[in-house]
Amino acid sequence: MTYPMNESFYSNSPELEPTRAGFGRGLKAAGEADDRIVALCADLTESTQMHLFKEAFPKRFVEVGVAEQNLVTVASGMARAGKIPFTSSYAAFSPGRNWEQIRTTASLNNQPVKIIGSHAGVYTGKDGATHQMLEDIALMRVLPNMVVVAPGDSVEAEKATRAIATNGQPSYLRLAREKTPVFSAPESPFELGKAYILREGSSLALLGTGTMTAKLLKVAERLAEHGIDAAVVHVPTIKPLDEQTILNVARQTGRVVTAEEAQIAGGFGGAVAELLGEKLPMPVLRLGMKDRFGESGNPDELFDMFGLSEEKITKQIEEWAQQTHRYHQ
């Protein structure tokens, strides 16, 4: 089945929206569908787009102040009382500051607490390194019971929010601050634990999570101009990983590139490398942040600085493709 795309994506004026906006709509819709949904925020209600829920359901919204440890532990207690709590802050603070509380009271305790980490990744831009959370994927995907999702755009973020509202598990949703291209359509599929092939290709596979998938779609166009036929796979759920789809595509293409706006160590690239290393060893190129912090700047400038602009990604992949051989079974 061909993945339905947003028609504006390849036009001169692609639709742009932050993924957090999709979360805001999804949370309100989830709240309408299920009155067990409650929302807790640590003094960032509008910034994390919880204000839509707050206005619709004031009785089910809880302000906890700038106290991220309390944010997630109060939520755990509410889950014990039968609620489905969504907690939001910036990813640098939750799960950055309260990881042990998440580990013990949500993950080990196996309560359906939802951790919404907004302003994750390089798209946080001018706020600089302290606020550009790059380690959250690594931190969250090592936790048993935890589901980890980095939606590709705002349309998918809305669907992902609805999905984690009903999965009964502790879950982490990674969101970006700035507007990013909307490549998926309302009718595009989204299921937790599924990866989607957006573009077929034979000479290598580009695996993207979160907002990097949109860049990879453009990179694939550039690579095609240079005679490289790249498949593009969107992997919004980092845990559990859709091993079957990834292994199938890897088998067909023989080489895999991963991309994320996060640390590649322990991140999405780490997850894919672990899978392929065990089950289908082949050349892997991991693109993302390489053992360094971010800094202040416009996102476009920063992506260029970190080698993650479409142009620089294309160049790196071309060079790597020349130096590597495709895996054949």
């Binding site: 109060v74 207690g77 014990r80 042990e100 013990t104």
Partner: peptide, 17 residues
């Protein structure tokens, strides 16, 4: 529980509900 300091907030979350 075990790691200290997190019981009061869970109890508070339950009581709030």
């Amino acid at each position: 529980s075990g790691p200290l300091g997190s019981g009061l907030s869970q109890a508070a979350g339950y009581a709030y509900s």
